[in-house]
Computed example of a mutant assay.
Amino acid sequence: MAIPVEPALSPHLVVDDAAAAIDFYIKAFDAVEIGRVPRPDGKLIHAALRINGFLVMLADDFPEMSGGKSMTPTSLGGTPVTIHLTVDDVDTRFQRALDAGATVVMPLDEQFWGDRYGMVVDPFGHQWSLGQPVREVSYDEIAAFVGQSG
């Protein structure tokens, strides 16, 4: 009997010290730990969390599994990826991330596309944006604004 598959798209984060990252995500984003699979030395080969209701997987860095290269954002000099959370009460959620140890990349402010929005980087180098819709804005209005400012 086949197991039914629910379509999903889930980030899989590589970090230094996955156990500490789990603790951070619980404090910063109210994550719920689903489970973890440690090696005998304690490094996590897999962990799963729910953040904002969605699955996020993570693991410790294992360069031996990546052609000898470290794959953390810190070792790579940053990340081109931003993980976005749409939340209510963005001010509280943003401050909670800062209190847990995140650093501001872009301060919270109302944006032309209709969100109160800001960005942080977590202590492991992953970038997160938090946004709360505050007004409806059409794509035409957004395009007009970008055309004026460009």
Score class of each variant (00 low, 15 high):
residue 52 N to D: 13
residue 18 A to Q: 02
residue 104 V to E: 09
residue 32 V to M: 12
residue 93 R to S: 13
residue 111 Q to P: 00
residue 39 R to K: 14
residue 5 V to Q: 13
residue 123 P to Q: 03
residue 83 I to K: 14
residue 47 A to M: 00
residue 101 G to V: 03
residue 112 F to M: 02
residue 149 S to C: 07
residue 57 M to G: 07
residue 137 V to S: 06
residue 50 R to S: 13
residue 107 P to M: 05
residue 55 L to C: 06
residue 37 V to N: 14
residue 100 A to C: 10
residue 79 T to S: 14
residue 24 F to L: 09
residue 12 H to V: 07
residue 48 A to T: 10
residue 118 G to K: 07
residue 79 T to L: 05
residue 51 I to Y: 06
residue 90 V to A: 11
residue 27 K to D: 15
residue 76 L to T: 12
residue 26 I to E: 13
residue 96 R to Q: 11
residue 48 A to D: 14
residue 77 G to I: 09
residue 60 D to A: 04
residue 5 V to G: 13
residue 120 V to D: 04
residue 132 Q to G: 03
residue 55 L to W: 06
residue 142 I to Y: 01
residue 50 R to C: 01
residue 5 V to T: 12
residue 130 L to Y: 00
residue 49 L to C: 05
residue 35 G to C: 15
residue 44 L to N: 09
residue 139 Y to K: 13
residue 94 F to I: 00
residue 129 S to D: 09
residue 21 A to K: 00
residue 150 G to V: 11
residue 112 F to E: 01
residue 120 V to R: 00
residue 129 S to V: 01
residue 25 Y to W: 09
residue 60 D to Q: 01
residue 70 S to A: 11
residue 119 M to N: 10
residue 143 A to R: 01
residue 131 G to P: 00
residue 21 A to I: 10
residue 51 I to D: 08
residue 9 L to A: 10
residue 149 S to F: 09
